[in-house]
């Protein structure tokens, strides 16, 4: 009977196995025209249309960035503002996506995950954008490559 009691004791204990990642983020990396990773030499700020939230604020030497996407919209427009001492350039990146809720455990918060269906951008300092991994989940690697205009 002691063994049975111990077994039931073991099964009645709970362990919480929430993901270490608190947020599901869309990972973007910056590349030059040859496909080599680059770090932006000037300051980058990213905002999202339809919200006053600043998603990424005054980052310097940015080579990659992880951004939250909206939970229920079919597309998000992210405005990337790159500025230095004497200039300011702005591009919009439009991400089309579908969303689905995911729960790890009763003791962990529900997460919204996404599947990117397409991406496009304006072309002031961005040359092109490419989806490399459409699933935006926990720790899923890079989702979008942003290729920049290379100075002539």
């Amino acid at each position: 009977m002691l063994l049975v009691a111990v077994a039931f004791g073991i099964t009645s204990c709970d362990s919480i196995d929430c993901s270490l990642e608190n947020q599901v983020l869309c990972q973007m990396g910056f590349y030059d025209a040859t496909g080599a990773p680059v770090a932006l030499t000037d300051t980058l700020t990213i905002t999202a249309a339809g919200t006053d939230s600043v998603l990424y604020n005054r980052g310097i030497k940015t080579s990659k960035v992880g951004l939250p996407l909206s939970y229920y919209k079919d597309g998000d427009t992210l405005t990337l503002t790159l500025y230095g001492e004497h200039y300011l350039l702005q591009d919009d990146v439009v991400i089309k996506k579908t969303n689905y809720e995911h729960f790890e455990s009763l003791d962990c918060p529900v997460k919204m995950m996404h599947v990117i269906n397409g991406v496009e951008s304006t072309n002031h300092f961005i040359d092109s954008v490419v989806v490399v991994s459409p699933k935006v989940e926990y720790n899923n690697g890079e989702n979008i490559k942003i290729y920049l205009h290379t100075a002539d």
């Binding site: 939230s53 909206s70 229920y72």
Partner: peptide, 13 residues
């Protein structure tokens, strides 16, 4: 069945 009545989009919502 699974329910969570307090689910909120804290960035865009």
């Amino acid at each position: 069945d699974y329910s969570n009545p307090d689910f909120t989009d804290e960035v865009y919502g």
